[in-house]
Every structure is written in C-alpha cells, then in structure tokens.
Computed example of a mutant assay.
Amino acid sequence: MKMLKRTLLAISLASFTQVSLAAVVMIGNPATADQLTKKQAQSIYLAKSKKLPSGASVVINELSPGDPIRSEFHEKVTGKSDAQLKSYWSRLVFTGKAAAPAEHGSATALKAAVASTPGAVGYIDEADVDGSVAVLFKP
C-alpha cells in the first residue's frame, strides 16, 4: 500500500511539474523586433544569418550550457545538443566566420542584455516575458 501511495504521489508531482512549465520563446529587443519563422530563428542561432529581417545586425545571447531552457530551445530550433553546439561554435570562431554568442548565467541576465541592446536576441521561458522584450518566435 505504501508503494502504491508513493507511486501515485510521484506521478502526481511529475504531472504538476510538466503543467507548471511554460514554453520557451525566442525574444528580441523591442526596438528592432521582427516576427521570425523557425528557419529564420535557426539561421540566426547557427550564425548563417547575421541580420534580422528588418536589416538590424543580430547580437546572439545564450544561456549557459546545461541550462534546461537552453537545451529545450536548441532541441526545438537548431536540433543540436550542448556538445554539438560547442563543437559547431568552436569551428566558426576558429575559422573567423563568427564571434561566439554572449553567455548568461540566468534568464534574468539574458533578458536584461536583450532589452538593452538593439538587434539582440535570446530565449527565455515564456512566463518570464514582460514589456522589456518582444517575442520573436515561439517553437
């Protein structure tokens, strides 16, 4: 009986956790915000596109490797894991094709960087979106 109660409790907690999480969204500075397609978002985060559709130069912001929001975003948008991203960006930086994105230790820091930099993009949990940033894409 105790085992059944523990199992039911674990299932209930897992269900609650899944429901309480919002979706990850790509954000941008409101002054240079454009609505993006998945292909455009992917091109930006893989440094294949260095400008937003409006023509503004892109400043890419990332959360630190291992952050669950980072993993979710890249799984849905670029299709790459943290290890694959590290290898990909190392190659781009080494060959001089791109500068590494700025990394932030928290969604709050990333959001502040995007809010204060024209052309900046990033990603956060949708629940953290406020008037300081604009949603560009929701995977």
Rank of each mutant, 00 (worst) to 15 (best):
M1C: 12
L4N: 12
R6K: 15
R6P: 04
T7D: 13
T7N: 13
A10E: 02
I11V: 13
S12C: 14
Q18I: 14
Q18F: 15
S20N: 12
S20H: 13
S20Y: 15
L21A: 13
L21W: 08
A23R: 07
A23M: 09
V24I: 11
V25I: 07
V25W: 04
I27W: 09
I27G: 08
G28H: 02
A31P: 08
T32W: 05
A33T: 10
A33P: 08
L36D: 01
L36P: 02
L36I: 04
Q40L: 04
A41K: 01
S43H: 06
S43Q: 09
S43L: 08
Y45I: 03
L46N: 00
L46Q: 01
L46C: 00
K48T: 08
K48Y: 06
K51R: 06
K51I: 06
P53W: 03
P53Q: 05
S57A: 14
S57C: 03
V59M: 02
I60G: 11
I60Y: 01
N61Q: 06
E62Y: 12
L63N: 08
P65F: 10
G66A: 07
D67P: 08
P68I: 12
I69Y: 00
R70H: 12
S71P: 04
K80Y: 01
D82Q: 07
L85F: 05
L85I: 09
Y88T: 06
Y88D: 09
W89E: 14
L92P: 05
V93R: 06
T95P: 04
G96Q: 04
A100T: 00
A100H: 09
P101H: 00
A102Q: 09
H104R: 02
G105H: 01
G105Y: 00
G105E: 06
S106E: 07
S106P: 04
A107T: 15
A107N: 09
T108K: 14
L110R: 04
K111R: 11
A112D: 15
A112R: 05
A113N: 06
A113S: 14
A113F: 06
V114F: 10
A115R: 05
A115I: 09
T117C: 12
T117I: 12
T117M: 12
P118F: 05
G119M: 05
G119T: 10
A120V: 09
G122C: 11
G122L: 11
Y123D: 01
D125I: 00
D125M: 00
E126I: 11
A127G: 07
D128R: 00
D128K: 01
V129P: 07
D130N: 12
D130F: 04
D130K: 03
G131Q: 15
V133A: 14
V135F: 07
V135H: 03
L136W: 03
F137D: 00
K138F: 01
P139H: 10
